[in-house]
Computed example of a mutant assay.
Amino acid sequence: MAPSIKVGIIGGTGMDNPDILKNRTEKEVTTPFGYPSDKLILGEIGGVPCVLLARHGRKHNILPHQVNYRANIWALKQEGCTQIIVSTATGSLREDYKPGDLVILNNFIDNTHGRHQTFYDGSCNALEGICHIPMEPPYCEKLRQVIIKTAEKLGIFCHSSGTIIAVNGPRFSSKAESLMFRQWGADVISMTTCPEVVLAKEAGISYAGVALVTDYDCWKPNTEHVSHELVLKIFNDNIGKVVKLICASVENMMKEDWSQKIQENEEFVKKSIWT
């Protein structure tokens, strides 16, 4: 049995349903970086304490570039979360990553701008110095493998790796941009991965992402181009398996010993801070 762990779950489009938690309570919190996107939903999945946070707010009224990512990650850290699993709707930049497929992300390209990328910028007096956090690997491999193995046991098809490119939004890509991102080597595209993945690393929290492919962006000929309606339709049609995979993965996490990984994360951050 693993030592005490607490799992943060950040829901993308369609994943902000608090009913997946048992014994749920709501908690309004603030952080040195302001308020998170919504109240925290506390509860359990298979006996594992969890904290659910709606990335865009439960009314889905926060645009991707307006999400307070620092407050979101810090709120989960304040609550003692040792791991974070997120879901995100993505467009595909590859022929073989089809709408409805799941991708367990393992790398990213940041094409956003104007977003706060660090906690260590002097805005919080309790955090001294500058943090030059290494970002390889950006996603926790131990946590990724739990999710991949869980998908295999459930018979849920998923791609075991994928590079995601984060764009600022809220608009979708032009065709020229979409073709360029393909040349860059990105597999899928979204608007919310960065700086979320960076801040989780800086906070010393293991982070993994489950991406649901909803469309082919706009690069692929003779297919329906991405639109808000298309994203919602495909996501709503497939949200059940996303929820099933995340919940089962949380339960399977308790079969692992996380003590060494938690300690490694804490030491990793300490070594990255220059004072």
Rank of each mutant, 00 (worst) to 15 (best):
L212G: 00
I5M: 12
N106C: 11
I104V: 05
R58K: 10
T25A: 15
Y207L: 05
M254S: 13
L63A: 08
D217L: 03
E266W: 15
S190L: 12
L40Q: 00
A176E: 05
T25M: 13
E202N: 09
L42N: 00
A208Q: 14
V198E: 05
K261G: 02
P170T: 08
M254N: 11
I234Q: 02
F157C: 11
E44G: 07
N238M: 07
S249D: 04
R24T: 14
A203E: 05
D257M: 06
E229A: 15
V188N: 02
K241L: 00
H228E: 09
I273S: 03
A2W: 04
P137I: 11
A151T: 01
D110V: 11
K6A: 06
R171Y: 07
K261V: 12
W219C: 04
F157Q: 15
T150Y: 03
I156N: 05
Y69D: 02
N17H: 11
E251Y: 03
V213K: 04
E28P: 08
S249E: 05
A151I: 08
H228R: 12
E229D: 05
F268A: 14
L53Q: 10
I73H: 00
Q260F: 11
D237N: 03
P221G: 03
N17Q: 14
D110P: 07
M191E: 00
S4V: 15
I85L: 10
G204F: 01
A54G: 13
G91L: 00
I109R: 05
G162P: 01
S249T: 02
T223C: 10
K98M: 10
M191C: 04
T214P: 09
G34R: 13
Q260E: 14
K59L: 10
F33W: 13
S92E: 01
A248Q: 12
Y139G: 10
L232P: 01
G91Q: 01
K27S: 14
S178V: 06
S161A: 15
G240F: 11
Q78S: 08
